[in-house]
């Protein structure tokens, strides 16, 4: 099994990035062996449509489960099409979240849990 985690850093000690489409890195983790690969999120600076683009990228990696903080409506639609299971509401350290996932403490999202553009932050 492959899990994609939205992350602020490149290793398992890093903090979960609560944004999906505009997260800094994806950590692709095998929860059984805890082997992982860090992948830069090229959609982070997209002018629009970051969510669907990020969904396509992790789908190409053959991911089964996504663990993140928030997912917007367009991203959710794309993730649903990809068949990736979406678990939202995560924050804290990556490795702690994987433990929670293994013990079945993370809930599956039934839809988008934030509106469009939630990951774009306030005005600079």
């Amino acid at each position: 099994m492959k899990i994609a985690m939205t992350s602020k850093g490149k290793d398992l000690e890093a903090e979960v990035d609560t944004r999906f489409g505009r997260c800094v890195y994806f950590l692709i983790v095998d929860p059984d062996t805890m082997e992982f690969e860090a992948m830069e999120n090229e959609s982070a600076s997209a002018s629009g449509g970051a969510g669907p683009q990020a969904a396509q990228a992790i789908s190409k990696k053959g991911v089964d489960v996504l663990i993140t903080g928030n997912v917007g409506p367009n991203a959710y639609q794309a993730l649903e099409a990809s068949g990736i299971k979406v678990l939202t509401g995560s924050n804290g350290m990556i490795k702690d979240m994987i433990q929670k996932f293994k013990s079945g403490e993370l809930d599956e999202a039934g839809g988008a849990n934030v509106g469009s553009h939630a990951g774009m932050g306030g005005r600079r």
Binding site: S43, G48, G49, A50, P52, Q53, Q56, S59, A78, S82
Partner: peptide, 8 residues
């Protein structure tokens, strides 16, 4: 503009 996505 990422208006199109092809997934699977």
């Amino acid at each position: 503009y990422n208006a199109i996505a092809v997934i699977k």
